[in-house]
């Protein structure tokens, strides 16, 4: 095997149809980076979901004199015995891990802190409009929310039950939708990449038909005849992958890592996640280019 000779042939091949090679590299780069972005989204959604599933809880808001909902105006503000009753009922439920009472003052303090960026809302909300509540931690947040809520729903002293996951759902939907769109576009582009690889290799085989016919005549092995073309496809794959790697690092650094600016709850992806996605993109690129070149060559470079 003469590596220098093979690479010289590859270099000639790449230079001869430069425009096709550049087009191929660009398409491989874009499709791989979109595929990678899709995968990063999947990881982002998964890790965020896992993070919040461990923390999701039920907030049971209690009636106070200032709350004017129909539920409360019927029963009046919560009494000490009603509060005791609600707490014991929640605690006796096997799906509940813990029940914490949060006083109205504590809730108000937290409200002021969370909405500190919106002073007019804070100032226009009197302290007694924020009720006290029970914060209920559940064993299996997704499954048990409705069941636990229905037990105490409408009990005297209970105003409303707020389920954290109903707050998170729109966020998940947004991420899922973005991921699906990105993956779909990536798949279309991968198909385009496959066709482009096939076309480039075909052109290359046509450009080098004299060399190829002489190689066959003097008894070059099939492997030797096909190798320059295979390497050509692979090199396009590697260059496309390099560009895609840059784009993926940028996607993570400038976009995914900044999501927490727009959503109060976000989990950052680790560098390992990024490396995993980049390696997967390399394997996909090499596989697509290598396999397509190989199959194309079998049609155009018969012995």
């Amino acid at each position: 095997m003469r590596a220098q000779f093979v690479f010289h042939e590859v270099w000639i091949g790449l230079r001869r149809n430069l425009t096709m090679t550049v087009a191929l590299i660009v398409v491989v780069a874009i499709s791989l980076s979109l595929l990678g972005t899709g995968l990063l989204f999947v990881k982002q959604v998964d890790s965020t979901r896992t993070y919040w599933q461990a923390r999701v809880q039920l907030s049971v808001y209690l009636c106070s004199s200032a709350v004017v909902s129909t539920q409360c105006s019927k029963n009046g503000p919560v009494t000490a015995s009603e509060q005791q009753q609600i707490q014991s009922e929640l605690k006796s439920n096997p799906d509940v891990t813990s029940v914490t009472f949060v006083s109205a003052a504590q809730n108000y303090a937290q409200f002021r802190q969370e909405f500190s960026s919106n002073p007019s809302l804070v100032n226009s909300t009197p302290a007694d409009e924020i009720p006290s509540s029970f914060e209920v931690k559940l064993k299996n947040a997704q499954a048990d929310v409705g069941q636990v809520g229905s037990v105490i729903n409408g009990a005297p002293g209970v105003d409303q039950i707020v389920n954290d996951s109903s707050v998170l759902d729109p966020f998940y939907k947004l991420l899922d939708g973005a991921r699906n769109a990105v993956v779909l576009v990536a798949i279309f582009l991968l198909v385009a990449a496959i066709l482009l690889v096939a076309n480039t290799i075909r052109l290359s085989a046509f450009n080098r038909r004299r060399e190829t016919s002489i190689m066959r005549l003097v008894g070059a092995s099939n492997f030797y005849v096909q190798l320059p073309f295979l390497v050509e496809g692979m090199i396009a794959a590697v260059f496309g992958w390099l560009v895609a790697t840059g784009l993926l690092v940028a996607v993570k650094a400038f976009w995914l890592d900044n999501l927490h600016q727009y959503f109060a709850f976000n989990v950052q992806l680790s560098a390992t996640d990024l490396v995993e996605v980049i390696i997967l993109a390399l394997i996909t690129g090499l596989l697509i280019c290598g396999l397509t070149s190989f199959l194309t060559l079998r049609r155009y470079l018969r012995v």
Partner: peptide
Amino acid sequence: TNWKVPHLRRRIGCVFQDFRLLP
């Protein structure tokens, strides 16, 4: 077998009317 054909061709030289040189 097909993959041994190259080895056969290494023992045979060929010359043609149109030379078939690489320009």
